[in-house]
Each structure stands twice: as C-alpha cells, then as structure tokens.
C-alpha cells in the first residue's frame, strides 16, 4: 500500500480533535492536562457548540489553554475563574461557559469564588484538575497535597500540625444547593478516560437545563512536580491519591449519590 492509499478517510482510526489547535502542547510529557484538554474539546465538537462556547483559562500550568483550544477564551487572574465565568454567563445565559482550573487556583486562592459560584448555582461547568501540587510554580504544597506528601514547601512531607489537612473541595461543594452535577474522575487509563469523557459531556449538556453548576474533578498526575516518571506517577496516584480522593459521581441531577 502506498501512502495515498493509507491516508484515505475510510482508513482513519484516530485524528486530531477539530476544536484543538495545531499548537504543540506545552505540558510535560506524561501530564494529564493534555488528555483533559482533548476531552473538553471533543465534547465541544460532539455537541456542535464551538460557536456558542466561551472558555475561561486560569493561572497554573494550564494558563495557556487558550493556545490549544480553538474557541473564544479569556484568561482570568489567579483564583478568579468562576467569578469571570459568572460575569460572562450572566450576560450570555445561552452560551456554554466553562472554567479550567488547577487545585491551587480553585481550592486555595480562589476558594471564595468557587464556593459562591457553586452556591449561587451559576449555570457553568468547572473542569478542576487536582494534581495535589502547584505545578507551574515548581512543585509547592497545594491545599490538596496529601498528608506525608513531599513538595518543595513541605520537603519532609505535609504534617497536620504544621500545614493542616488536605481539603476535599469537591465533596464540600457537592453539599451546596447550587451544584447539580459533581463527579470525580481520572484520565490515567483508557477506561478512566472514557468515564471522564462521559462526565465532562454531562457537565456541558447540563448547562442547557439551567439547573445549576456542574463540576468535574480530574485527579491527575504531576510527574514533574512529584519528581517521578509518568508511569511511576500514575501508580503512585492509584495507591495514594485515589484512597483519599475516591473516583465516581458524587452528585447527580442535584441528588447526592449514596455510597
């Protein structure tokens, strides 16, 4: 078979998602951010909403998300993404508005904005990447850093007495009346990618119902910050992160999921 034969449309098994740009991702090889970008843009493609979606990038490794997503996007100050999204959504109730935030952005500096956007039930989607660390600034402790976990500002491991407890912000906002759908997923295996995709798609579709906020947390690796190979980091995540941050839906159609 010559090349022309091979690249015929009917032989296509995998292609770049339409709504992703050609720009090379700036993430570390092995990092989960790239996969989540793809899932979000696949969702936009499949729902056919490219012309109706406005994204909000935050401050963190994903600050340049707007370079990779072929949609209209703004970039918010550190922690304020849900406030920025609120401003957009209130003026454009029929657009699909989403934020893309790390744990430092969403659960430390932006806790107030997060809780109140959730509590008001803004009809937006939050994509929340929980990698238990500040990736962009070089691996400092995040609010989600596990006890005992090492970071550049907890070089001997996080201790309750000194640094307090890791926060389960997702369980916390699930308690609020304004959230409609809350789910925690991961993207480290093909099976998990499929589940994460389903959750993200639901979170976007929910915006049409105007019944409140949808948040999907992706527990993800930061192999650079954790100082591991990508494979090691995924194994470490399964063994340490998932017991504390269990995967699965937490709130569906406004009802907490009984476990």
């Amino acid at each position: 078979m010559d090349l022309k034969e091979i690249i015929k449309p009917e032989n296509l098994v995998y292609k770049r998602t339409e709504c992703l740009t050609d720009k090379t991702l700036s993430y570390c090889p092995g990092c989960g951010h790239g996969t989540v970008h793809r899932l979000v843009m696949e969702t936009v493609d499949e729902l056919g909403i490219q012309s109706d979606v406005i994204g909000v990038a935050s401050v963190g490794c994903s600050v340049l998300a707007y370079d990779f997503m072929d949609i209209d996007m703004t970039q918010s100050p550190h922690g304020r993404a849900t406030a920025v999204a609120t401003g957009i959504k209130r003026c454009w109730p029929d657009k699909f508005v989403f934020t893309y935030q790390g744990d430092g952005d969403l659960a430390a500096i932006g806790t107030g904005e997060t809780i109140h956007a959730c509590n008001r039930g803004e009809n937006i989607t939050i994509i929340f990447i929980n990698n238990g660390i500040y990736g962009m600034t070089g691996g400092q402790m995040a609010p989600t850093t596990l006890l005992g976990m090492k970071s550049s500002t907890t070089p001997y491991g996080r201790e309750v007495e000194l640094m307090g407890n890791p926060i389960k912000i997702t369980e916390l906002v699930a308690q609020l009346a304004g959230t409609y759908f809350v789910s925690r997923q991961s993207v480290h295996t093909p099976g998990n990618v499929r589940k994460a995709k389903k959750a993200i798609k639901t979170a976007f579709e929910n915006q049409k119902l105007k019944k409140g906020l949808s948040l999907v947390e992706i527990v993800s690796n930061c192999n650079s910050g954790w100082k591991m190979t990508p494979v090691e980091s995924n194994k470490w995540m399964e063994e340490n992160m998932f017991p504390f941050y269990p995967l699965g839906d937490i709130k569906v159609e406004g009802q907490l999921v009984q476990k």
Binding site: V56, T74, S76, P77, A83, G87, I88, R90, E113, H116
Partner: peptide, 26 residues
Amino acid sequence: MVLLQAESEIAAINMVYGAASTGKKT
C-alpha cells in the same frame, strides 16, 4: 441589565472582567 451582589470586591471586578471580555458595557 444584569445586577449581581458578589461575594467580595475581588469577585466583583472579575465578573466585570468576564463580562467585558464579551464586549459588554460593564
């Protein structure tokens, strides 16, 4: 016109930033 009491001045100015990004008079 949209009117919203934000949870802080920080949130308020960022709501302005969001709406202004879309060309609205905010």
